[in-house]
Computed example of a mutant assay.
Amino acid sequence: MSSDQTPSHTRLMYLGIGGLTLAALLVANGLASRSRHEQAVSQWTQAAALPVVSVFQPRQNAGGDTLRLPAHLEAWSKAPIQARVNGYLKSWQSDIGSKVQAGQVLALIDSPDLDQQLAQTRARMLQAQANAKLAATTASRWQHLLASHSVSRQEADEKQSNAAAAHANAQAAEADFARLCSLEAYKTIRAPFAGTITARHTDIGQLIKADTDSDTELFDIADTHQLRLYVPVPQNYASVVRPGMQAQLSVPEHPGQTFSARLMGNSTSVDPRSGTLMAQFVVPNPNDALMPGDYAEAVLAVAPDTHGVSIPASALIFRAQGTQVALLDASQHVHLQTIHIGLDLGDRLVVDQGLKPADTVIDNPPDALRDGDAVRLANQGAPHAAKA
C-alpha cells in the first residue's frame, strides 16, 4: 500500500462510522417519539373511557310541595224523576236548564184508568161503611133482646161478630181508598228539592208506564248550589289527605281561574282495582260557574318535611338490590346508596332514608355504572347547581 492511499482510507472509515452513528440517533429518536405518542394515546383512551356524569345535591323539603291530580265534580244532590202512575203526559211546566223550588210542579199526567179505579174504590168504601153501620146497629139491638131473654146468646154473639167483621171490611176499604188517593197525587210530578232541571226525557202525549223494566225517568234534577269534588288519591299519597285540608281546583272552561274546596272525608280504604283512596271535597258554587260532571284538576298541598330530601326521579337506579342512587365521593369514585322513597311526586321524589343534603348525587346514571367506578364530571371545575 502506498502512502498516498492511507489518508483516503482513513477518511472513508470515519465517514462510515459517522453515518452509522447518525442513523442510530435517528432510529432512537423515532422510537422515543413513537413511545411518547403511544403513551399519550393510552392516557387519552383511559380518560375517554371514564363515564361523563353530571351531579347535584339534594335539597330539604322544608317548603312543602303540591300534588296535582285529576278529579271530577258531581252535584250536591241529584235524582231522576220517574212516574208512579200509568197514563199519558198531559203537560210539562219545566224544561232543561230551569231553576225549580222544592214542591214545584214539573208535569201533569192524565190517567183515566186510575180515576175510574179511584171512583170504584170510593164506592166500595161507602158500601163497606154502610154495612158496618148496619151491622153495628143490629148487634146493639140483639144485645137488648138478649137482656129480655128474647133471643139466645149464640145469636147475639153472631150479630156482634158480624158487626166486627163489617167494621174491619170498612177499614180495609178506607185504606184501599187512601192508597189510590196517594197514587192520584202522583199524577202531578213535583220537584223533590230545589235545583236545576238538567234533562227532560218526555213530551206531551207520551205513554207513561210506571213500575216496569222499560220505565225511564221523565226529568233529571240536580242541586248545584254547592258541588262534590271527588279526587282519587294514589296509595303513595294517602298520607297527604288530612282532616280539614283545603284544595284548589281548575276546570278547562275557566282557564286561569281557581276555586277552593274543603275536605269532607275519604273512603278510608284503598280501591284494589285502581289503588287509590277516594277523597271527597265540598266546593261552593253560588254563581253556577261550575257544572256537575265536570273534569277538574285538583291541587293538594303536601306538608313540609324537614326529615326528607327532594331529588329528581331521573337519578333513580332500579336493580336487584332495590331502589338506589349513585353518590360521588371526593376522589370521584361512585358509591351506590340504597334509599327509601317517602313520597312520589312524579318528576320529583321525597327521600326519607338514605340521603343527606350534603351528598353529591349523579343525575341520569349510566346503566353500566358499578360501585367503585371512577367517573369524570361533565363540567369539571365549574360549580354544580342543585337540580332537585
Rank of each mutant, 00 (worst) to 15 (best):
V100K: 02
S148W: 05
S150N: 11
Q93M: 10
G103T: 07
L118R: 14
L114V: 02
A139F: 04
L126I: 12
A102Y: 05
K99N: 14
A102R: 07
L108F: 05
A136F: 07
S150C: 03
D110E: 14
S91K: 10
S94A: 15
E158A: 14
H144D: 15
A128Q: 06
S91E: 15
A102F: 04
S91A: 13
V100R: 08
W92K: 12
V151F: 00
H144V: 15
A119Y: 07
R141Q: 14
L106R: 00
R122G: 10
A132K: 02
S111G: 09
L114E: 09
V151L: 01
D157W: 04
I96S: 10
R124T: 11
V105Q: 10
G97F: 04
M125R: 11
S98A: 15
V100A: 01
Q120M: 10
Q93V: 09
K99W: 12
D113E: 14
A107S: 04
E155Y: 00
D113L: 10
S152T: 05
A130L: 08
K99I: 09
A119W: 07
T121I: 05
L126N: 14
A156Q: 08
R141I: 05
D110N: 08
Q104M: 05
L108I: 09
V105C: 04
D115Y: 07
A119H: 11
L146K: 03
Q117C: 01
I109Y: 06
R124Q: 13
A107H: 01
D113F: 00
E158L: 13
Q129L: 07
S91G: 06
V151K: 03
L114C: 04
S94V: 10
E158Y: 07
H149I: 08
T121F: 00
A132Y: 01
V105R: 10
D115C: 04
A147E: 15
A130K: 10
L118Y: 08
A156G: 06
R124C: 00
W142L: 10
Q101I: 08
Q129N: 11
